[in-house]
Design a protein around this nucleic acid. Structure first.
Lengths: 201, 201
DNA sequence: GGTGAACTTCATCAGGCGATGAAGAAACCG
DNA sequence: CGGTTTCTTCATCGCCTGATGAAGTTCACC
């Protein structure tokens, strides 16, 4: 067997930014598949076609890699604004559509990562929850302005969580392969109903 | 420091069944908190106040321990029957109530374990899904007997999943502390609606 | 074209992991 | 009582983990 193409000698192969990106992509995939504990630095390195030491070179520790791999994608906050922009009218469909479209095209799926991962179990879970509570739930409760707003928003959380878990983590059919429009048509009005409809009490 | 009470000599201390039970309890707690990969046999043993070797003595392998710790509680199937027993009328409330009451009083929460755990990622996840598909979804689709039954049942799965994750895993308020009756009142009619209501198309 | 920084590899460390096997102590059984 | 089984501890194995440090290679800049 002759070594045909890769002499595996040290040196500057790639732009550095590229290696960093390769590692991040591999890390995101593995963290999502196997969780934090089930993912080894060596496996990430192998998948990124990179020496394990490079992971530490760029991210110092495994936790640093995790933090970098799960940070919020930049295009999410603007999408969030577009949900609230239209007021209460049709907000049900908007929230479902925005959620699905953003998670469909991105492999970051912060929810997925955080469900099965978390280095210390407290740390990043608390962080994400605080963000969601402040940026989504809080604003929505304010917008609704009814006595049982908190419970209504809680129900929305259940929908979002269930939809995300079913579609992206467990991949339950037919939810996983249903087109976005179908799901929006099904869930949108329902969400709208329990957000702005009359109370069942 | 004098060794005050435990000479730590080998020998028969407890009934064996008791040690086994201690290990199972500790394992369930840790698997749920940290997942399969994040739980070490040594940690389970420490929590059970038992030598690590005992875990292997009773369960042979770590996987064996996992299998024993996550096996389905015996009282679930009968509860399942009671859901279908009443036919389609009020099935929405029944399914929500049964789910909540069973998961509230049990610390097994197979869903919780399976969400964050799974030894090979395929194995037990596939097992639970097969069970759910056969025993719940299949029967329900049959019972509904409409063209879009699969999608309706998929929506039910989303509800169940979201509710379980929100209440028992993420502990999102106010869902986590809401009384069962409140949740049944909110989710029951909604579930009933999209199961037996007219199609949105 | 030489110098220093950026990137990459390799060898290696200490520590924890799952797992094994032997041997000791209590309980059970005749 | 003696022998066997059952429970328990301990010492240890080989492996893989996260992490470090030094040395080598290439590039950018002057």
């Amino acid at each position: 067997m002759a070594e045909h193409s890769s002499p595996a000698r040290p040196g500057r192969w790639r732009s550095g930014a590229e290696s960093r990106q390769r590692i991040l992509d591999a890390a995101r995939a593995l963290f999502r598949e196997n969780g934090y504990g089930g993912t080894t630095v060596r496996a990430v390195a192998a998948r990124a076609d990179v020496d394990p030491a490079m992971v530490f070179y760029f991210f110092d520790t495994k936790k640093g890699l995790f933090a970098a791999a799960t940070e919020m994608p930049a295009h999410l906050p603007p999408a969030l604004e577009s949900i609230f922009a239209g007021g209460l009218d049709g907000i049900g469909e908007r929230v479902i559509r925005t959620l699905l479209e953003n998670m469909d095209k991105s492999d970051r799926t912060p929810l997925a990562v955080l469900t099965r991962s978390a280095p210390t179990h407290e740390e990043s879970e608390a962080l994400l929850r605080e963000f969601i509570d402040r940026e989504i739930n809080g604003r929505l409760v304010e917008l609704l302005d009814v006595p049982d707003a908190a419970l209504r928003v809680g129900m929305l959380n259940v929908q979002i969580l269930g939809l995300a878990v079913a579609r992206y983590i467990f991949k339950i059919e037919p939810i996983a392969s249903a087109p976005v429009d179908e799901l929006v048509a099904r869930f949108g009005p329902m969400v709208q109903q329990f957000l702005t409809g009359r109370s069942p009490s």
